[in-house]
Structure formats: structure tokens, C-alpha cells
Amino acid sequence: MIDVKNLTMIYPSGKGIFNLNFKVKKGEILGYIGPNGAGKTTTIRALLGFMKPNEGTCTINGLDCIKDAPKIQRFLGYIPGEISFFDDMTGYEFLQFMHEMRGLKDNGRQNELLKLFDLDPKGKIRRFSKGMKQKLGIVTAFMHNPDVLILDEPSSGLDPLMQIRFINLILEEKEKGKTIILSSHIFEEVEKTCDNVIIIKEGKIVNYSTVQLLKKSQRKGFIIKPDNCEQAIQTFLRSNFISNQLNNDSIEVYCSGDRIDEFIKTCAKLKLYNFDEISQSLEDVFMQYYKNEGVQQ
């Protein structure tokens, strides 16, 4: 459905994206992840036809993203990373305007979405909060029932409840066979919705795998309170787990996703007073990934 080949786009600063290759099949959801400035939005600019690449091509449903951009837009929904509306319009006027620009009349789906996100788009958009603007962006991207969705950090600014509703919306769309590229920093969102994940850094793909594989590679951290810290550290070391003394009665231990069973069995050898998981965000996952990269180099 989406096919990116040798895509290279270089800015005058020398930054950009270099020789990207990936495919997204129909019905697949691809997580597109990377730190700020990695080239996520740049890739999306090429897919939307905003910028012509220096080299390479990208196509959606066989249509060239630059030449056939208007045709592609018929079945594409897009949430910009930095949303900006026409400030002097009210929310309703904006939605109405987008319908007209798309040449559509039916706004049944629009009303469903407004209800889902609890959004009453009366009043000037200028007065909207960040979260309301984001919701309006989501409604705009989904309201014409597009087959392909390109979402650039779609849930930034949403409260946790709305983030859950958004995840459910994505899952619902997935059921309908929609193809989605989701650029996100929220691990839960990617974990729950995506089939595959691309991690991009400095314009290059550094990891392209399924979510399961990525989760396996995720290092988990635990804070435990044993009766004897010295002894606990030695025990973990013998089983090849890295641990550090945190303060005089706690230590932290790290364990890769595929060694959980071994880890718990090692813990069973100790006497523990407390056991906490260090919650990890997606950033930690790719931070760790980059660190590994560094070691390999």
C-alpha cells in the first residue's frame, strides 16, 4: 500500500533522511519512532507530497506521492505534527470548510467522532486549548473515512482518558482494514496498536522489526529491597544480570525482555522486602537501543 524506496531528502543544513526503504501492507499499522529531529516529519512531508525528495520515490497505492498528491488525498487522512488551523474560523466552520474542500457532504462520521472525543467545536479555534486543537485535528483526519492514515504524533496534548479513546479508535480502524503510519512517543500507543516498528535516528533506519521483537529487546528495570544488598548483587552477577546499589537498602536490577523467567527464579533465591518495576517509556527503549548500537560500533 505504502512503498518507500531509496528515499533521500537533504536540507541545506545537511540534515535530512537518507536512503530509507520500507513498505506498509494494506491493513498494517507501522509505528514510526525516533527522537526529535530524527527525520520522522521529513519522511511524512515526502509522503504527503509537500517536499520533493532529492532521490528515491514513495508511492501510496501505486500513486506517486509528489505527482499524484491530489489523487492520494482522496483516500488519505493526515494529522500534522504541528497543527495549525485557520485561526479566525470556528471549529464547525473549519470542519465544514474541509468537507467542502474534499467535495463531500455526509458528516455522519464527523458527528460520531466529535461525540467520541467529547468535543464541541463551537467558538473560534484561536481560543481552543492544545488538547481541543488536537481533537479537532483527529476528527478532521478521520471524518472522511480514509483508507490510509498518516498520523504525526496524533495524541500529543490529549489527556489520558482521551489517549485511551484514541488508541481504541486506531484499533477500530485497524479492524476495518485501514493502513496506518503512526509517529509517536507514547509507548503504550505503539505497543497496543502497531504491527511493526521502525526506529529512525539521524535520518537513517536503525531498527525495523515487529512490536513483539522490540518488546523482547526492551530492557526492564526493577528496584528491589533485599535483606542483604551485597549478597543480592553477587547473586545477580552470577546469573549475568546487571545491578547497582541505589541507596543503603535498595538495589536496581536490569533484565532483558526474554530473560524474565530466569530473573524471577534468581529473585526467588533471595529474601526480598519490596519489589518495584521501573516504568519505562518508549524513549528508554530507543535510548537503550542507541547505546547498544554504540557498543557494537
Partner: peptide, 20 residues
């Protein structure tokens, strides 16, 4: 102005060509 504040993205995310 619409390029500067990004809102032109919304015009281009409709099935209308840049020329139009």
C-alpha cells in the same frame, strides 16, 4: 502566512492540486 504557520498543510491535505 499560511506556509509560515503551517495551516497550508490543511489545504494540501484535500484532493486539490497546488496549482489549483
Amino acid at each position: 502566512k499560511m506556509i509560515d504557520n503551517n495551516s497550508f498543510a490543511y489545504l494540501l491535505s484535500t484532493p486539490n492540486s497546488r496549482v489549483k
